[in-house]
């Protein structure tokens, strides 16, 4: 319950934070809302020697309408994302997914960037990033680069961010007419983390599904897209039959193990059931 000692460095700007990152080499951790980091520090699973507080950097938490995309600062809190009018209007799936994170108190403090950089394999947001085709903006000593969500999550608690880099912004393509999304989560009754979470975003035109992205969290070492499901949707009629046929592929290529959360067969089933339910709702939203 008491973290080990560390030095605390409030950063006034992104440049300031990058300079501190460079100065302390491998030792520092970035602190935004702290809701991924502080819990592991309290249990002493992590004991960083330096914490760089990026939670006080002005404008890093802004949520703005970038026209074709919604731009969300890395330190925007989950609650801000949930209640943001621009998010709700242009990328409602993101608001829906963010509303499932933790509990209201955690959402009041935790940040979008913190959660994504932590890359918990059972976190909600990564599924949304994949389904929405988001772009993550990383800033480092060499400047700024963009990373597609598809390339961002690389392994358990591991991302494509380089040492010395920080996540500064998330850009989520705006959705228009004919697009619908939904998130179906089966939460662990204790932790609230997703046993499985399926985020689906589909585009329907003239009764045909023209594009679909399905992100899955919880059942693998990292959030991933369900390519076989997406493939079984694209170009097909926007019907329940299409959804059922596509959802049957939700566990294709995935390897599950039996553990305390259930058998491998049960997990495959959950992937299929929640994929079907998410797709059904996404289609309904797209054609509403």
């Amino acid at each position: 319950m008491y973290p080990a000692s560390f030095e605390y460095h409030p950063a006034a700007s992104v440049q300031d934070a990058l300079a501190l990152l460079a100065k302390y080499g491998d030792e520092p951790k970035l602190l935004a809302g702290g809701h991924s980091l502080i819990p592991v520090m309290k249990l002493r699973f992590a004991s960083p020697a330096h914490l760089i507080d990026i939670g006080r950097i002005p404008a890093l938490s802004a949520i703005t309408d970038g026209g074709s995309a919604v731009h969300i600062g890395a330190t925007a809190r989950h609650a801000s994302v949930v209640s943001s009018p621009v998010v709700r209007q242009k990328v409602p799936l993101l608001a829906e997914v963010a509303s499932h994170i933790g509990d209201p108190l955690i959402r009041n403090m935790g940040t979008i960037g913190g959660s994504l950089a932590h890359a918990d394999p059972a976190a909600d947001l990564p599924a949304a990033m994949l389904a929405l085709g988001a772009t993550l903006v990383a800033t480092g000593p060499a400047g700024t680069r963009t990373i597609a969500a598809d390339d961002f999550f690389t392994d358990v608690f591991t991302t494509a961010l380089h040492p010395g880099e920080m996540l500064t912004e998330i850009r989520v393509p705006a959705r228009g007419a004919g697009s619908g999304g939904a998130y179906e989560k089966n939460p662990d009754p204790a932790s609230g983390y997703a046993i499985v979470g399926i985020a689906a975003q589909v585009q329907v035109s003239g009764g045909t599904i023209t594009a679909a992205r399905v992100g899955m969290t919880g059942l693998g070492p990292k959030a991933m897209r369900l390519a076989a499901v997406e493939g079984a949707l694209t170009g097909k009629p926007a019907t329940a039959a299409t959804v059922a046929a596509a959802a049957a592929h939700a566990a294709d290529g995935l390897v599950f193990v039996d553990d305390a959360r259930g058998s491998a067969a049960y997990k495959g089933n959950l992937a299929r059931v929640h994929t079907r339910r998410a797709l059904a709702r996404a289609l309904a939203a797209a054609t509403a």
Binding site: N186, G262, A265, Y266, N269
Partner: peptide, 17 residues
């Protein structure tokens, strides 16, 4: 009576897994 246990029992009864 966890969901996993219940689902597996139903599958077993159906002659599935």
């Amino acid at each position: 009576l966890t969901p996993a246990k219940i689902w597996s029992a139903i599958q077993g009864a159906k002659g599935g897994n």
